Amino acid sequence: MILIELDRVSGDFGFEAKDTSGHTVRLDSSPESGGANFGVRPMQMLLMGLGGCSGIDIVSILNKQRQAVEGFQMTIDGTRETGKEATLWETINIHFALKGNIDPDKAKKACQLSMDKYCSVAATLREAHAAINWTLSVNGKAV
């Protein structure tokens, strides 16, 4: 079982979430919705979770293949549904940018395995009918 504690600590919508290891995250609503920019929006946190989940998968896979991952950046953008409540993620685009002594084919396969098989956050978002698209570059070259 996973336990998360959430306490309101700032204004109406400023929350702090804490896991059992003591790691904390601040969450808030947008100023347009009555928030005060105290923390990350919950739906943004979902995209951050997607990035963390897939990043861990990809680096783990490449490390097992003795690939030297010296740098790893991701950009993630998304579009949410309109005219509905709740507004789910409709389309999510990820770009993986890896640096190091990495075989591009192995990097592509690692990204594919993460997105299609291992990343639980990606699977959860796909169950909610989000289209997840991704691209990859290794040492600045598109793969």
Results as ranks from 00 to 15, higher is better:
F13S: 02
I102A: 02
L47M: 10
D12S: 04
S120M: 12
H129L: 14
M48W: 11
M115Y: 05
F96D: 02
T24S: 13
G71F: 04
A122G: 07
D12P: 03
N133E: 14
D19I: 00
L98V: 01
M48A: 14
G35W: 10
W89R: 04
L50Q: 05
A130L: 05
K106H: 12
S21P: 00
L62H: 01
L62N: 00
E90W: 07
G71R: 06
D57S: 10
N133D: 13
N37I: 08
F96L: 01
S54K: 01
V121S: 07
G100M: 01
T82Q: 11
G14F: 06
T91P: 06
M74V: 06
Q44R: 10
P104A: 08
R80L: 08
E32L: 04
T20G: 06
H23E: 08
L136A: 01
M43K: 11
S114L: 07
G49A: 13
L88W: 11
G71Q: 09
S120T: 15
E5W: 00
F13W: 09
D116P: 04
T75S: 14
L50V: 06
V59D: 03
I76L: 11
G100P: 03
L62A: 00
A97S: 13
G51E: 06
G78S: 13
G83Y: 09
S120P: 10
V25C: 14
A131D: 15
D77S: 15
Q73K: 15
Y118A: 11
T124P: 04
L62I: 00
A110Y: 02
L136M: 02
V40A: 11
Q112K: 14
A128T: 10
I2V: 05
A110K: 02
W89H: 14
S137K: 09
G39W: 12
G11T: 01
S54H: 05
G71W: 06
N93S: 12
H23A: 14
F96T: 04
M43F: 15
I94L: 09
L3T: 06
R80H: 08
N101V: 08
A130K: 07
L46E: 07
S21T: 08
A86R: 15
D28N: 09
Q73D: 15
G39Q: 12
A142L: 12
I94S: 02
S114H: 03
V143N: 10
L88M: 12
D19N: 15
A36T: 15
Q67Y: 04
G34T: 01
L6H: 00
N93M: 07
K64C: 07
I61N: 01
N133W: 06
A123S: 14
